[in-house]
């Protein structure tokens, strides 16, 4: 099946001369949830903005539903719903009016029943006559989602949807996302939290400094990246790793006062039990034990180095 969104060799240099995207290529399949994962400034918003028509690309090509986003902007933009990163709202408008306005802008005939359903799905119905300045940040975020859903998009972009959002709203937001996916909507969300990508996405694309480092199925990626470190602090420093522990691939750090063991959390056997037993047998006295999840930063470093 042809991808619903296809980005090829996309580049963007801002007027300031800053190169925000350096030849990005990415295909998004219809009906999937793709997380665009990357640190602040990676180029996530720039990428989304080009697909949606807010920013002009410097080079490359984007198609949505097979249509070019520049030449056939009417077809592509009618298909897309966008929830921006910033909470930008028209403070003096009512929820109902602003959501109705969005539907009209996208060329759809008025449909109060649909708007009512969207507002109810997002628990905004009781607020329909409130002006936006009366709403909390979390509710404003929901209004932005309602606006994006007002015209029944086939592709939904959520740019950092959980920034400044509390746990319960986050949960209800993921429920909405799940329901949309079940109805066939393709969802692309950006985030800089690896847990978030893990929680919701089918596939994860990692982006850094305007380059896509990898695109992979979530499960495969989590196995690959879900590494942990076991750090063992010793009471007596060691010169070398004892021979009896050679099979564990240990690393000595901190002037021999710390042993590092890397293991894979998703593996059947992590080898921790055996390792600790072997350490006791070798007569090592342990001061402290801690574990550490590889952070997004470690992962980036790892991916970047693997790419060399």
């Amino acid at each position: 099946m042809a991808p619903i969104v296809s980005v090829s060799n996309l580049s963007k240099t801002y007027a300031s001369g800053f190169e925000a995207l350096k030849g990005v290529s990415l295909d998004i399949e219809e009906g999937e949830i793709l997380a665009l994962l990357g640190p602040n400034g990676a180029g996530k918003t720039t990428l989304i903005s080009i697909v949606c028509g807010i920013v002009n690309a410097t080079g490359g090509k984007v198609t949505v539903g097979g249509h070019d986003v520049v030449r056939d902007f009417r077809q592509t933009r009618a298909m897309i719903g966008l929830v921006p990163q910033e909470l930008t709202t028209d403070a003096f408008e009512t929820v109902w009016n602003t959501v109705t306005f969005s539907r009209g802008l996208h060329g759809k005939k008025p449909d109060p029943e649909h708007i009512e359903k969207v507002l109810k799905d997002l628990s905004l119905w009781s607020k329909k006559d409130s002006t936006l300045r009366e709403l909390s940040g979390g509710m404003k975020r929901r209004v932005l989602i309602a606006k994006a859903l007002s015209h029944e998009p086939r592709v939904l972009f959520l740019d950092e949807p959980t920034a400044g959002v509390d746990v319960s709203l986050r949960k209800s937001m993921w429920e909405v996302v799940e329901r949309l996916r079940a109805s066939g909507v393709t969802i692309i969300l950006t985030t800089h939290y690896i847990e978030e990508a893990e929680e919701i996405a089918d596939r994860i694309a990692v982006i850094n400094s305007g380059e896509i480092l990898l695109v992979e199925d979530k499960k495969a990626l989590m196995t690959k990246l879900g590494r942990k470190q076991l750090r063992v602090d010793l009471t007596q420093p060691l010169e070398t790793v004892p021979d009896s522990l050679a099979s564990y691939d240990l690393r000595l750090e901190g002037d021999g006062e710390r042993l590092i063991y890397e293991y894979d959390t998703s593996a059947e056997r992590t080898g921790i039990t055996a390792l600790l037993a072997a350490m006791a047998e070798a007569g090592l006295r342990l001061k402290d034990i801690s574990t550490r999840q590889s952070s997004l930063e470690d992962i980036f470093v790892e991916i970047v180095e693997a790419g060399r």
Partner: peptide, 16 residues
């Protein structure tokens, strides 16, 4: 005004 508040994003991303 939409430029100032940022709501212009919506007009720019509409099929218009």
């Amino acid at each position: 005004f939409p430029k100032f508040t940022g709501t212009i994003y919506e007009v720019l991303s509409s099929p218009i």
